[in-house]
């Protein structure tokens, strides 16, 4: 899905400016890193693209959807085209790994047999099939992260949003997560990823958009950037 943000500003009550006058275009199938200090506006920007947050002003157009004008009734159908890997995973503790992935498909009314096939395919792809009966608390950080990715992509979204997917992971696990994200991107999914991880940005080259105090301060097509270099 193509993404177009024009003059987007987000002000939290009473007067905290989280994003200010952001212009951004992302083409379908691109991989984009969002980097910047904590509080620079990365997460706010990503949450607006999933329409958890609404802009105070400006336009956000994702594919055929104008997020500012979208009616509440359309929102579930838009979100089915967007996969999200949350910073805190948001895995459901009372469901096992397979159920955590399956419920996304059940929630959109997919038939049971198709759900089982899709769950098996994605868990196998992310090397979690043997761990499918484990509950999130029984899994390592890397496994939980992979499970969160599995849940985000099981519905084959056109857009994948990942907020710090390698945060708190060791280098080896972070690499495996990045391999997965790039393979998903290779299949045509637009991937937007917020990160603090300099190693990841250096090792897995892609477009880098740097934010500072709610503004885009640089946009490198194939980023050889230092994340906090000039800030």
């Amino acid at each position: 899905m193509d993404i177009r943000m024009a003059g987007v500003t987000k002000i939290f009550h009473p007067d905290i400016v989280a994003l200010e006058d952001v212009y951004l275009n992302v083409k379908r199938g691109e991989f984009v890193y969002f980097v910047g200090h904590t509080g620079s506006g990365k997460t706010t920007l990503l949450r607006m693209l999933n329409r958890e947050l609404s802009p105070s002003s400006g336009q956000i157009i994702v594919g055929k959807y104008n997020l500012r004008k979208m009616r509440l009734g359309q929102l579930p159908f838009y979100r089915r085209q967007v996969g999200v890997v949350f910073q805190d995973f948001k895995l459901l503790p009372h469901l096992n790994a397979a159920e955590n992935v399956a419920f996304v498909l059940e929630a959109i009314g997919m038939p049971g047999r198709q759900v089982a096939e899709r769950v098996k395919a994605i868990l196998t792809r992310l090397d979690l099939w043997k761990r499918r009966f484990l509950y999130p608390e029984q899994m390592s950080g890397g496994e939980q992260q992979r499970l969160a990715i599995a849940r985000a992509v099981v519905n084959m979204p056109s857009l994948l949003i990942a907020d710090e997917p390698t945060g708190n992971l060791d280098m080896e696990t972070a690499e495996s997560i990045m391999d997965i994200l790039f393979s998903i991107n290779a299949s045509g999914t637009t991937v937007l990823m917020a990160t603090h991880n300099q190693y990841v940005v250096d090792a897995f080259r892609a477009r880098v958009v740097r934010l500072s105090r709610g503004r885009i301060v640089s946009d490198e097509p194939r980023g050889e950037v230092e994340l906090y270099g000039d800030l």
Binding site: P76, R79, K90, L92, V104, I108, N155
Partner: peptide, 9 residues
Amino acid sequence: AVMLLVGAT
């Protein structure tokens, strides 16, 4: 919250 975020009506 998660259900609504992944597109459940």
